[in-house]
Amino acid sequence: MEKMPNVSINLSRLLVPDTVYFDITPQCNLRCQHCYSECENINLKEKTYKEVRNILKQVIKAKIFKIDLVGREPLMREDFGKIIRYISQKGCLIKIASNGTLINPEIAKTFASYNINSVQISIDSVSAEKHNMFRGNNNAFSLAVRGIELLKKHGINACIATTLTNFNFKELKKLADFAYKLGVYYYRTKLLIGNPHNKKFQINKQQYKYTVETLFNLKNHYKNMTVEQLHHSFLFEKNIKYDPARSITIPCGAGISRCSLTYDFKITPCIALAHLYSAPIKKGLVKEWQNNPIFNQWLKTFTLIKGKCGICGYKYVCGGGCRANVFGVTNNIFSSDPWCWFNPKNYK
């Protein structure tokens, strides 16, 4: 029997993250059918501006380059303009992820006057009816499209993100065309991180493969618009080496170059796995990043992946797939990626 290769993790972990995803509010104006908050007891009380600024001060002092303002809906904060003004003055790059419905001419104008790198808007179908059903609001689609148009009008980079579901995986080409016509610079999909509440929307292995292939075929299709590839797109590339001896890497950078902060100020390598790996920021952001044991536990996870991903020679490319997705589908963080269709050599 062939000996199982040693699995180690490629630890090029930064002293300080280069990007922080900051969940600045637990508030939202939509009732999306897939949202994690339907399954958790969310305390809807926002942190004050002063408290948020304290965290931002640490981010800026540590020379963390990028701040992604997320939330449930970051624009729900009344002091949002004040927050971006503060970050912008300190020379940090700002990205925003929004459902787009609250963007009005005044907000678009505010964005344009600060250092906003891009704004990501969720669009889940070219059919307004389907998008509205999924987002729990009859006007969600038209408002989101208006939001994108306003961003474009004010010269702000807009990105469209589609949450991948079993009702939209076949319309990705149409969605990318739609994004292109709206003039966005980037189109991407997001995996639907499973929870008991959103199982009915989950795609399966075959649908996932179809999606990866569709996006791969759209890779160089549009001029001036990038189509983001999913984890396993490399399986369609012919020049990627299969090497069982190589270390695991974490392509998304979670816990390596990036971390997230929850709305109640917990630090976590991945926002979608905050229920497994998170800790309150007690000793300061940088100290928690450098010393909190949750990050070691997180990295150790990758060395303990079982089954075919554990022995696969492509683990240095995909890191065993998105762990949040694996957990969502299998309820086991150490499982192999149930959606990967590749069978490693010598795997029975």
């Binding site: 090029s12 930064l14 002293l15 300080v16 280069d18 020379k63 380059f65 990028k66 020379g91 940090c92 790059l93 990205k95 250092n115 790198n117 891009s118």
Partner: peptide
């Protein structure tokens, strides 16, 4: 200089173009 931020790391350093976001 208004486009640049940089810092030291174990392996050397990181530089970012704040306008493009490229690190």
């Amino acid at each position: 200089k208004n486009k640049i931020n940089y810092r030291e790391e174990k392996f050397g350093g990181l530089i970012i173009n704040i306008k493009t976001g490229k690190i």
